[in-house]
């Protein structure tokens, strides 16, 4: 968290890691990111939730990996050179891997450029994962509520 002072007003800011999933850009609060690793062999776990791809070995620990595409009901993952697994440390101190198409950059967003999530009854389901939308120059970044994404069970 950083703060700036514009005209005596204190505005908080947060750093996000910008990732690409399908055609959209998402931001993940950097404080929850433990590590980013390249795509590696994932061991399938039978009978787990469908959006879990399986488990990987991260320096001797076994860590489950979920696919954001599967979670969001998008087209299947295609492994490319840019595919990454973001290792997230949740508030419960557990590690979970999140498979994304690409990791773009780290941005600092101030609260005044973030449009907080509004409750929309019709789109409630999709909105649960989002904290809001941030503007980075011309681009829009959907800010993920990463703990909700991981913890929620469909």
């Amino acid at each position: 968290m950083a703060e700036i002072d514009i005209n005596g007003e204190v505005i908080e800011s947060t750093q996000y890691i910008v990732v690409k999933i399908d055609d959209e850009q998402y931001g993940i609060d950097i404080q929850y990111v433990d590590n980013i690793v390249r795509m590696q062999r994932i061991t399938r776990v039978p009978k787990a939730q469908p959006y879990f791809e399986g488990v990987i070995n991260l320096r001797g620990e076994v860590i489950p990996v979920m696919s954001m595409r599967k979670k969001f009901g998008l087209a299947d993952d295609v492994e490319t050179n840019k595919t990454r697994i973001i290792i997230v440390k949740t508030e419960a101190q557990a590690l979970v891997g999140i498979r994304v198409d690409e990791v773009r950059e780290v941005v600092t967003l101030y609260d005044n450029v973030i449009e907080k999530r509004s409750y929309d009854k019709n789109k409630e389901e999709a909105n649960d994962y989002l904290l809001g939308v941030g503007k980075n120059g011309e681009e829009l970044i959907s800010l993920l509520n990463i703990n909700a994404v991981i913890a929620e069970d469909i």
Binding site: V45, K47, A48, P64, A94
Partner: peptide
């Protein structure tokens, strides 16, 4: 196997 993943 870690948290969050449901296993039989």
């Amino acid at each position: 196997l870690g948290k969050y993943i449901n296993i039989e």
